[in-house]
Structure formats: C-alpha cells, structure tokens
Design a protein around this nucleic acid. Structure first.
Lengths: 348, 348
DNA sequence: TCCCTTTGAGAAAACCTTTTCCCAAGCCCA
DNA sequence: TGGGCTTGGGAAAAGGTTTTCTCAAAGGGA
C-alpha cells in the first residue's frame, strides 16, 4: 500500500514485445532468453531476464496454448457439487493437477442433460486437454455422452462408458475390512444394515459380508436393506433385537454408511445396550463430522476418495502426454479408520 | 457406435480455414457468415453455415480470447473445498456464470500461502477476466493478496480487503428472524447457545439476540459460548436446566448452528423434556442432512448461500463489463426454514 | 590473405479468429 | 457513355508467443 517499490501490475499486462523493446532486442531473442533456449551472451540473457522481472512480465497463456495446441486446463464434470463423495475426489484431482501447472474447470451438470451439453461444449471450445467425469454414485451415468470427444477422458467414482478408463473404490474390499476387523476382535454374530437395493454398492458390500462370514464359518444373517438414513438405523435395531432367543442377538453391526451407524448406535443406547461392550458398530464412508459425533466415536471404512481423485488426475495427464493406458475399471483399496465403536481385542 | 452418419469429431479440431476452403470462400467471409456479420448473398452465408455444421466446426476460444482480450473464464479461490459453506456459494457462482458462457477455474488454496500464490499466478497467466474469493469463515482472510491484481475481484463469504466489494450473509438479521419467530409463538424465556468467541458471527448473532429480547421487554439470558459441536449442545442443556428455580427454565433455545441444536434436542429428550411442547429449538445454517435427522426435524436459519454466490457472480460480470460498482460490504438476508422443532402458535 | 566455422541475434511463419479496410463488378441516373 | 453508389467478398493486420531459418560478423587455420 504505502510502498511503491513493488511493481504494481499494469492494467494492461506487459507483453514480450515491450520487454524486448526495453532490453533492446527482438522478441525472438527475448523469448529465447526467458525460456533458456537459443544462443546468446550470458550478458544479453541476463539483461533480458532482469528487464522482464522489472516489468513484471508474465507470458500470456492464451497465446502459448494457441501455439502449442495444449491449454493446460482440464474440465471436471460432476453432478454432485454439494456432495460428500465427489468433493474429496475433486479436491484430489485438483491437487494432483495444480502442481503440474494445469488448472481445473469446475462444471456442475446436476442431472440436467442440457446443462451437461452446455458445459461439455464450453470445455471443448476452450480446448481443454482432457475431461474427468465424477459423480455421486458409482453406478450412475452423468447426463452427458463423453464417448467420442476426441480428447482423453477419465471417469472417477461414476459409471464409465464402455472401453473407458475408470477409477472407483473397492467396496467389496472395504466391506471385508470391516467384517474381518469384527472377526479379529472376537465378534461372532455380525449383522449388516445397509441402504436400498437400487444401489450397486449395496450388493457389492453385502456379498463381501456374506463371503467373509462363510469363509470364517460364521452364521450369515441376511443383510437388512433400507434407506441411507439415521432413521433406518434406528428401525433396523428394532428388527435385529426385538427377536426372542437371547443367543440370537448380534454382537456386531456393520452399517452401509455412517448415518445408519449413527442411528444404530443411538438406538442401541436407548435400549440400554453398550457400544462397544455389548455390540460393536462399524460405519462406511468415514464422514468425519458424523463419525466423530457419535458416542462413542465411530470406526468406519474410508474410501480414500482424495487418493482416488489424485490417481485419476495423474492418469489423465499421462494420457494427455500421449502415453497409452489400458482401458478398464481400476478399483482402489479402502482403509479402516478405527475409533472407539468396536472395542479392543480380548487380548489387547 | 454403429452409426457413422454422425460426424465424429476429428482428432484435430476443424479450423475456420478448412471450412472456408471447403465452402470456396476466404476465411474472412467464413467468419462473417458464421457470426452474422458483413454482407453477402443469403446463399453464400447458408452454404458456409452448412459446411461448418457438417464439419462440426467450433471456433477456437483461445484464438478468440487472444483477440478480444477477454477469456470468458474466472478464477474461484477458496480455502474450503470440503466445506459446508463455500460449496453452496461456489455452486451459485458457477450457475450464474455458465449461462453467460463463462467458465470457472476451481482453486483450492487450503490455508497455504504458497499454494495461494501458485493459483493466483496461474489464473493471471491464463488471463481470467476476474476472481472471486470465498472461504469458510466470514471473518478470515484467504492466504493471498488480491488487492492489486489489475482485474476485478469480488469477495463472497470471506473477509475482504479494504475498498473491495464483498457479499456476506446478514447474521444479525438471521438471528432476529429466529428470536422473533420464538416471540410470535409465545415463547418468553429464550436462551442462546452458540460457538466460540473467536468467531465474529457469534457476536453479531448474540447481539441481535439481545437486541430483540430488549425490544420485546423479555429477560435477556447471557448467551452461552462454547464450540460448534453437538457435544457442546448437550453440555449447554445441563447448564441451562440444572438450575433450581422452576420458572427460570427456558422455553426456547436459539442455537448458533445445527449441530449444537442437534445436541440440545437430544439432551432435552434425554431429560424427558418435549420438543417442541416444552422447549422450542431453532438452529442456524439449515444443514439439511442434520436438520432433517433431528427428532423432530429442526427449524433453522438459512443463509441463502447459493443466492449469495449468484449475486457475487453477476456482480463480477458487470465489473468485467466495465460497469462501475460501489465498494463495500453487502449483507444479504437470511431466511427461516420452519420445520417442527418450535411448534405452532397458540392460536394456530 | 582467404576460406570455413562458430557465434549471436533477428526475420518471419505459425497458431486461429475477427475486423477493418479495400476493390471489382454491376447498376442507376444524367 | 461516364460518374457515383451499392453489393459481395477478399486481403491483411491484429492479438502474444515460439520456433525455425537465415544472416552478418568474428574467429581460426592454412
């Protein structure tokens, strides 16, 4: 403010031409000097560099892009700007790209085909180097057709077109993590309360749940399908614990998401059952704000969405760079975040 | 896939030169034909249009931007990609701009000065038309200096530089809405449980709370400051209701956010107090997923963040268009979303 | 002294589109 | 028939940078 020593950026950005003129050379020489190309005396190069510095010269990306046929931008399409899932994905993508000098256009297409087309057209016009599609569900398509755009495209946490490259979470693996954790802690009657049958992940996780129980020789209780809500968690506890036989009651509940788990924990407490002493609970998603607000704090499966996004971003970049990549769906591992809702192992 | 009638986009995008060549005219004429400029026979114009259509020609935005000195992009800086608050703001901004053909660069600067500078430089290089800064707190600066960038800058839901244009929520107004709602419902002993003193909004809302009570001639109970958590809501209920005098107990609690409100509601229920019959509760933020999971669903103050974002986006555009605008902070009104945690008026 | 090579730097094309002139042909009117 | 106007369309510059050529001068060897 008070110091005028710092070169205030000109209203009209400084061009290479002005730098060259002031340094007494041609634009060609100036360009080469600043890019470390060409041959010239060290003195000339330094003089040009210093002039550029003094004028606050920054090369116009638009002109560079036009020439290089590469804009160093990518489009990020999502139908879930508000959402829990695509946000970490987007953040991971953005982080991976910013370090490479690539900027990200955020395009929220909702579930609106017209809006989707609008955004895709805008991206194409702006000559993005590639497009990443992400969404709120792994088993739903974005309302756009990206199959024949002529630029590299990657899908992250959304349903890909056939023949495309996609990154998704390994839901079955995540479910195994949870159930095996219960098993290691000595829990033997493990129930599963999850979301609606219309979600592919519900079946993937439920099947893994059954598989682990079968492998371990434990009784398989049929998964309880409902909604993704806290209220359903409450209700499910009634179904699980209102039975007659005492030995039949679960000593562990693996929940399809953290909200269900929250409902389950609250309902268990209302019944006078202790978590984790009487019943262990594991959630899914590791939604921090929910997982840390339950009493006790919730152990939960984390899908590593930021890492997934980072992976997707880096892969897109390598595609843009011309490197080949095998099409197909890559499942990235989940991890279990242990808090206090499962207790400690008997020997621990 | 099977239909080859649809013109598959060329690997190298079609240029105006190719369109012109195929239509047998110069590029100048082709440009004018497609833009509805210049004079030519209707037949020529139509032929060029049809050729462009057939080839799938789309003008290169980079070239246009270079010429027009306007990129039709803006940078959106935030330190809160995961967050509850900036997301609706960002969504509103993006919505407002996409219809005008303006794309948004998403820049997550975290609280990292280096990352902030990196992103700002990238935006400047890419010749964005303007920048919008948004964040997770209305009383904190982003870790970047945007004061002298040479391009229009708008602040939305974050602390502005002096002399800048900023849009924020009217927290005092929102608090008034809540307390006056209680008053209209006949509640007379209204408590306030809110977040830590380090937040400016805590004071703004608390002062408005006091003001309304004073205006109405109601007893002012000193606001209870704590954290933004559910646990604090629990604890605060103890402080409020563990006293001795029966007539002293509140019949309404205005909470600083929805999580506190959730804790308050749960604690009240555990004490055997009915919400809303014995005590009314109002939250702040209208975080749908929390407000609808409380029992009963929570009445809450909504800051209209999407609208705020939209306003910010449109204002930036008018600034870019060269229209003057008064610097200063514009407070946008909140609204009360009524659910079931306050009951109905006595006569209703 | 002459020729060849190296050195240092500039001219110009290219990227793609828009816009401002400019020009040739045709027409009208005197 | 000649001058002026309209019509239809093209040439060229502009926007900012990079890169490939080209070229003059200087230096070295014979």
């Amino acid at each position: 403010m008070s110091s005028d020593a710092a070169p205030a950026p000109a209203r009209q950005p400084v061009t290479l031409r002005e730098v060259a003129a002031l340094a007494g050379v041609s634009v060609a020489t100036a360009s080469k000097a600043l890019n470390g190309q060409g041959r010239m005396t060290a003195e000339t190069r330094e003089r040009i560099r210093e002039t550029a510095q003094r004028l606050g010269f920054r090369p116009n990306s638009l002109a560079q892009s036009l020439l290089r046929r590469r804009s160093f931008t990518v489009g990020l399409l999502t139908n879930d700007t508000y959402g829990r899932f695509s946000l970490p994905v987007m953040s991971g993508i953005s982080d991976a790209l910013v370090d490479k000098g690539v900027s990200v256009f955020l395009c929220n297409v909702e579930d609106d085909q017209r809006l989707g087309q609008l955004h895709v057209d805008a991206m194409l016009d702006k000559r993005v180097d590639g497009i990443i599609a992400t969404g709120k569900r792994i088993d739903r398509h974005l309302p756009v057709d990206l199959s024949n755009l002529g630029i590299p495209t990657i899908y992250a946490f959304t349903q890909p077109d056939p023949g495309a490259i996609a990154f998704v979470s390994d839901d079955a693996g995540g479910a195994r993590l949870a159930v095996e954790h219960f098993w290691r802690l000595g829990r033997r009657r493990i129930a599963h309360v999850t979301g609606p049958a219309s979600f592919a992940v519900v079946h993937a996780r439920a099947q893994a749940y059954r598989d682990v129980l079968t492998e371990k020789g434990l009784p398989v209780m049929e998964p309880l399908l409902g909604s993704w809500s806290e209220a359903w968690g409450h209700e499910a506890v009634n179904k699980l614990f209102d039975g007659d036989g005492e030995g039949e009651k679960p000593d562990a509940v693996f929940c399809g998401n953290d909200q269900i788990a929250r409902g389950v924990i609250d309902a268990l407490r209302e019944r006078g059952l202790d978590v984790p002493d009487d019943v262990g609970v594991i959630g899914f998603d590791n939604w921090q704000i929910v997982a840390e607000a339950t009493r006790p704090p919730l152990t939960s499966v984390d899908m590593n969405l930021a890492a997934l996004g980072r992976e997707a971003g880096l892969t897109l970049l390598s595609l843009v760079g011309g490197e080949p990549a095998e099409p197909g769906i890559r499942k990235l591992p989940c991890r279990l975040v242990v808090r206090q809702s499962c207790g400690r192992p008997p020997d621990g």
